Computed example of a mutant assay.
Amino acid sequence: MTSKAPSGHFRHLIIAGVLVTCFTAIFYIYYKPSMSWMPCTDKPQPDVCTEACLNVIANKTENTQEKMQAVTTVEPSKDHLPEIVVLIWYWPFGEHFDLNSCESIYGIKSCRLTDDRGQFDQAHAVMFHIRDIGGDLPSLLAMSRPPRQKWVWMDMESPTYSPKLIGAEDLFNLTSNFRRDSDIWIPYGRLVEISDEDEPFQMPQKDKLVCWIVSHWNDNHRRVGFFNEFSKHINVEGYGRHFNRLIDPQDYNKVMSSCKFYLSFENSIHKYYITEKVFNPMRLGTVPVVLGPPRENYEEIIPKDSFIHVDDFQTPQELAEHLKALDQNQEMYERFFSWRKDYVAKSSVFGQEHACYICDHLRKFRSFSIVKDVNKWYFS
């Protein structure tokens, strides 16, 4: 008697059973890879798994191996960053500095500083000290440069003593100076958190009440007019060329630290123009009495109770009387140094710090940029 072929309904049941079996196997391959007792594992049963089922298992195993290899791949070391080259077109005021200091002093790696103009085409940035450009401006305007190379306008003089580069309003891509709104901000000094390497602060011995070191004397300066009235009411130890009392560089720290107060009077008053005249006294344990931009500018970079601003007093005489009172109250005087428990004052290195942080900026920001009318930005 000839057997009958399975009915259509029966064939559907067989196909459904095989699919369920394969689905179950694939499920356990994905979620229970260690359970080898199920069909269609790494030792498949040919009487149960179809070829399609076995292909799924093979692909799964292959993908798993690729993922494992990807996980164990070692990423490139951050110690091998691509080198950034910064060309120093002019040494600022002719003063040279160590070209190999970015990593050792500032922790900025893979930065190469050079003054070799033969490497112009390889430089990622060129730093121009604008005080030294002078008659070279026409040749700079005519130069052809790599399209991605950044030209950096760098200056630390106030606008009063800086030249306007007429015709070069759009020549530069970045700015670097003491202005908080420059691209690479480099103040004349900083307060940084104290470290274990720093000596605990001890108040220096004081034998002078008020001191001032000045060589650049101009009767039209606000500081000169203020001093002429102020000195009528309090004794000021004057040093520098104007007072015919020059200080040997080796004696500077000793003289400065022996003064209770120092007249940190800027030669011109501009936004954020706060110079070493403030940071050197703070570094050496002397309270700066400042004449410059508004108090708000100072308070952005040094504690509000670490200095005295002349604008807080109605007259120079009122300021003089206040300093005399502080001289008689040691507890009040020492409050000006409360910040020394947590911070130390550091002076910036002119030119060197700019070049290194230009390098750091270029590594972090690679987008297109241009300074539209640098003269309007700086001299307005």
Rank of each mutant, 00 (worst) to 15 (best):
H129A: 07
E62L: 10
F93L: 13
V56D: 09
A70Q: 14
T72L: 15
A70R: 14
L87S: 05
L87P: 04
A52E: 10
T114E: 01
E75Q: 12
K67I: 05
S101T: 13
E75T: 09
T64G: 05
E83T: 14
N100H: 13
F93W: 10
V74K: 15
Q122W: 00
K78N: 06
H80G: 01
I130R: 01
Q122I: 00
I88S: 03
N100L: 10
H96M: 11
C102M: 06
K109N: 08
I57Y: 09
T114N: 02
V86F: 02
H124T: 05
S101N: 11
F120W: 13
F128D: 04
T64I: 11
L113I: 04
V71D: 07
E51D: 08
I88R: 06
I57N: 07
D98F: 08
N100M: 09
H129G: 07
F128Q: 04
N63D: 12
H96G: 00
N55R: 13
C102Y: 07
Y90S: 14
H129Y: 15
A58S: 11
I84F: 04
C102A: 08
D115R: 09
G94M: 06
N63P: 00
V56N: 10
Q69W: 06
Q122E: 12
P92G: 09
L81D: 12
E51R: 09
V126D: 06
K109A: 12
L99N: 02
A125K: 05
K67N: 08
D98L: 09
A52G: 14
D121V: 07
T64V: 10
T64W: 00
A125W: 05
D121E: 13
H80S: 13
F93H: 12
W91K: 10
A58Y: 04
F120C: 01
P82I: 05
D116T: 03
H80P: 00
L54C: 08
K67R: 13
C53E: 04
Y90N: 15
F97L: 06
L87G: 04
R131C: 11
V71W: 05
M127G: 03
P76W: 01
D98C: 09
Q69A: 13
W91R: 09
L99V: 06
R117M: 10
N63F: 10
Y90L: 05
T64F: 01
F93S: 12
I108V: 15
A58R: 12
R131V: 12
K78M: 08
G94S: 10
C53M: 03
E75C: 07
P76M: 04
F128N: 05
S110H: 08
Q69M: 12
N100A: 11
S77G: 12
D116W: 02
A52D: 08
T72H: 13
G107H: 08
Y106N: 07
N59R: 10
S77D: 15
T73Q: 12
R112L: 06
W89V: 04
A125N: 05
C53Q: 03
W89D: 06
G107Q: 04
R131I: 12
A70G: 14
S101Y: 01
K109C: 00
E103P: 01
C111P: 05
E62S: 11
I57G: 09
T114S: 07
R112T: 13
I130D: 01
F120K: 02
N59L: 09
Y106W: 14
T50K: 00
